[in-house]
Computed example of a mutant assay.
Amino acid sequence: MSKKLKLTVYDAAEDLCTEAMIRTFMAEAFETKEPGYVAHALGVAIRARAMKKDRAPGRSTLAAENLAD
């Protein structure tokens, strides 16, 4: 009998909380010299910066511009 694996979704952007972490992440992506990976990493970095902006003090995550119909 085989065991079923339960997989979870991991979003690296959630763990890139500082500019230094984002810079390191991108530097390591460029070291791979793989265009596809660099493009993916760039998307992750952009998402991380957007998340960081949303977590800024005084900014509500329930702001009207964040709610989509």
Results as ranks from 00 to 15, higher is better:
M1R: 09
S2M: 11
S2T: 07
K4Y: 13
L5D: 13
L5S: 15
K6N: 13
K6V: 15
L7H: 07
T8N: 10
V9L: 11
V9I: 15
Y10N: 09
Y10M: 08
D11I: 00
D11R: 05
A12C: 09
A12W: 14
A13T: 01
D15M: 05
L16S: 10
L16V: 11
L16P: 12
L16C: 06
T18L: 07
T18K: 03
T18M: 08
E19K: 05
E19C: 06
I22Y: 13
R23K: 14
T24N: 04
F25H: 09
F25S: 03
F25L: 03
F25V: 03
M26N: 00
M26K: 03
M26P: 00
M26V: 05
A27K: 12
A29W: 11
F30T: 12
F30Y: 12
F30R: 15
E31V: 07
T32E: 05
K33C: 08
K33P: 04
K33M: 06
K33Q: 14
E34F: 05
E34T: 10
E34M: 08
P35C: 02
P35Q: 04
G36L: 01
G36A: 07
Y37D: 12
A39P: 01
A39H: 14
H40M: 14
A41C: 14
A41H: 02
L42D: 08
L42T: 14
G43Q: 01
G43N: 07
G43D: 01
V44I: 15
I46M: 07
R47C: 01
A48S: 02
R49V: 00
R49H: 05
K53E: 09
D54A: 12
R55A: 02
A56T: 10
A56Y: 06
A56R: 04
P57L: 00
G58P: 02
G58D: 01
G58F: 00
R59E: 09
R59A: 11
S60K: 02
S60W: 00
S60Q: 01
S60P: 06
S60M: 00
T61F: 12
L62F: 08
L62I: 13
L62G: 03
A63W: 03
N66G: 13
N66S: 11
L67W: 15
L67K: 03
D69I: 15
D69R: 13
D69K: 08
